[in-house]
């Protein structure tokens, strides 16, 4: 029995990682075939770095993810503080409502925002329209991560600070904030990753000429796959791995070490 279970583990990992390795290996392919090996080379990375469209898309992705992460981290942290520190009417209702943007299909949120921008308020599609959309789904995730951090922390430290004469503002910045900072940074990193990775919502809410990396990759898949796509994918893979290591490091931070 144990043998069968171990075989299953190996099969699952092969299934999960073979496709990723295939992309990485073929990004170093010399020829212009995407899945037939013709020798090692960095040629496609050279091409990628000289592609102005890829750079522009990268810049747009970073602007959108950066601004959306900042806004959603502030709003989400405030919401998490209210939910965890106070008991108020509609609290449970609010917690449930905050899950809705996570469970509603991407495509529905995307077309709802598109309809809203185009037909209801007549707002032009551009970078701002994408940022607003990303904040909608990011808030839920930030709130969840920060709430988890607040649940495991001792509120008596704050009371002590207040007893010793600190005002509430000082107490927040000197006591609460440093204690929950790993949760806030963890939430922000998660929001940043989701934002960079998002395709569906960006695809519907971005204006013409505001291509992001995901949209750029999607149109390359649709209208002509070249090994450059493998190179850009590998770059994003490396980026994801750096982000996940940072996330885990911040989430694992003990309060004492702050």
């Amino acid at each position: 029995m144990k043998r069968i279970l171990e075989a299953n583990i190996i099969i699952v990992f092969l299934f999960l990682y073979i496709p990723i390795f295939v992309v990485i290996v073929f990004s170093f392919n010399r020829g212009d075939q995407i899945s037939v090996w013709e020798g090692f080379s960095f040629a496609w990375y050279g091409k990628l770095f000289k592609n102005p469209n890829a750079w522009r898309a990268c810049k747009n992705s970073l602007i959108i993810a950066g601004v959306a992460t900042f806004i959603s981290t502030v709003i989400g942290t405030a919401a998490a503080l209210a939910i965890e520190k106070y008991r108020f009417r509609l609290r449970v209702g609010l917690i449930r409502v905050l899950f809705l943007p996570m469970i509603i299909p991407d495509i529905v949120l995307a077309i709802a925002l598109l309809t809203f921008y185009r037909k209801v308020i007549g707002y032009p599609l551009g970078l701002t329209s994408v940022i607003i959309a990303h904040v909608v789904f990011n808030i839920a995730y930030v709130t969840l991560v920060v709430r988890a951090r607040l649940q495991g922390y001792d509120a008596s430290v704050e009371e002590a600070a207040l007893d010793l004469g600190a005002n509430e503002w000082q107490t927040f910045w000197r006591i609460t904030f440093p204690l929950i900072a790993p949760g806030i940074i963890g939430g922000a990193l998660l929001a940043f990753t989701l934002s960079i990775d998002d395709f569906v919502i960006t695809f519907f809410t971005a204006g013409v000429g505001y291509t992001t990396l995901s949209v750029h990759i999607h149109s390359s898949i649709k209208f002509g796959i070249t090994p450059e796509l493998n190179a850009i994918s590998t770059m994003l893979l490396v980026n994801s791995i750096v982000l996940i290591l940072l996330f885990l490091w911040f989430r694992g931070q003990k309060t004492e070490t702050i």
């Binding site: 999960l16 990682y17 073979i18 496709p19 990723i20 295939v22 992309v23 073929f26 995407i34 899945s35 990753t193 960079i196 990775d197 395709f199 995901s214 990759i217 999607h218 898949i221 796959i225 796509l229 493998n230 994918s233 994003l236 893979l237 994801s240 791995i241 982000l243 996940i244 996330f247």
Partner: peptide, 16 residues
């Protein structure tokens, strides 16, 4: 894999 771009993970299957 959850942290890796979904588009890339899906595209990888084209190669296979």
């Amino acid at each position: 894999p959850f942290w890796i771009n979904f588009l890339i993970r899906t595209y990888a299957w084209i190669l296979i």
